[in-house]
């Protein structure tokens, strides 16, 4: 668990982060979203002390981050940034092995960990371990960047706009991969983005920041149905908030037993996608199936619409 207490950062007379307090739950993805200049990156970088706070403190699992030298702290915390920051003169395997090397792991253990991570990110170790970053595609570089951040099995992973440089299709795939990886390794992830869709898609909890302050820190649905103020409401999107709300629930979650007519929809699809599919087929309902194609029940338009408004 990460506990941020009254954290501030001033540069001269300018306050970049203004008395932020929040708690990040263990084994979750927490997203900090805000416009550029909102102080979200500075807040993130104060967690691993790339930026030293002006006041306040950060506790990780109850331990003050200032109780050890900054570089030792950072070796225990994963860090991935936009544009991946891979070392161009080192191979994929050497890049991933960076922190394990700094920690003095044995070569045997490092080799096994590198291979495990490459496989977890769908990169064949035999093919990719010896390649240099410039020989990879943008999506592969980004995956290696995240694999490198996870190499020393950190309990906390900080990500600063990790998908910012990717095109929409690869970006969507990278987001799915991150959700998988988080489930697999159980890492506590704090991710910074300016993209509200990305925040809603990835974050179990989302902090909305503006001008150095956290305006609201809540579950995505609560941000939509009970925005703290008009700025949060505007940032989370007034015009399509109903559709956004639908995108937070999956078809499998509200499917009722029995069968009805209409198109077939995957249980993992969001209600927003389900509604779109039903409209497209001119139907009133849909069949929900799981990933193996087994029926999970059915779904009506009325049931979907009931989830598109505050209770």
């Amino acid at each position: 668990m990460i506990r941020i207490e009254n954290l501030s950062k001033q540069y001269g007379a300018t306050t970049v982060v203004d008395a932020v307090s929040m708690e990040v739950e263990r084994n979750t993805i927490t997203v900090i979203v805000g416009t550029s200049g909102s102080g979200k990156s500075t807040l993130l970088r104060m967690i691993n002390r790339l930026v030293e706070p002006s006041s306040g403190r950060v506790l990780i699992d109850g331990k003050d981050t200032r109780s050890e030298p900054a570089h030792l702290l950072r070796r225990r915390i994963g860090y991935a940034i936009q544009g991946h920051g891979l070392f161009p003169h080192r191979t994929v395997a050497q890049n991933i092995a960076t922190v394990p090397h700094l920690l003095g792991w044995s070569e045997l253990r490092i080799g096994a960990r590198v291979a495990e991570l490459l496989r977890a990110f769908q990169l064949d170790p035999a093919e990719y371990a010896g390649k240099y970053p410039h020989q990879l595609s943008g999506g592969q570089q980004q995956r290696v960047g995240v694999a490198r951040a996870l190499a020393a099995e950190p309990s906390v992973l900080l990500m600063d706009e990790p998908f910012g440089a990717l095109d929409p299709i690869i970006r969507s795939k990278a987001q799915d991969d991150l959700l998988d990886i988080q489930r697999r390794f159980g890492t506590t992830i704090v991710l910074v983005t300016h993209d509200i869709d990305e925040a809603f898609r990835l974050g179990q909890r989302v902090a909305v920041m503006s001008q150095g302050r956290v305006l609201q820190y809540d579950r995505p649905a609560a941000l939509l149905t009970r925005p703290a103020d008009s700025l949060v409401a505007r940032m989370t999107g007034l015009a399509d908030r109903a559709l956004r709300l639908l995108s937070l629930t999956t078809a499998g979650q509200i499917a009722t037993p029995g069968s009805a007519g209409g198109p077939t929809i995957a249980a993992s699809a969001s209600l927003r996608d389900a509604l779109s599919e039903i409209l497209w087929h001119g139907a009133e309902s849909a069949q929900v199936v799981d990933e193996r194609g087994a029926p999970r029940g059915s779904l009506t338009v009325a049931a979907i619409l009931a989830h598109g408004r505050p209770e």
Partner: peptide, 27 residues
């Protein structure tokens, strides 16, 4: 030298000397 590489090296816990010797000077 790519500033992202230097930033990543610091963020992963290299000391300033290690960043210079292992990343900046070789590049």
């Amino acid at each position: 030298v790519s500033s992202a590489a230097v930033e990543a090296a610091r963020g992963m816990g290299m000391t300033p000397g290690q960043v210079l010797a292992r990343i900046e000077l070789p590049l």
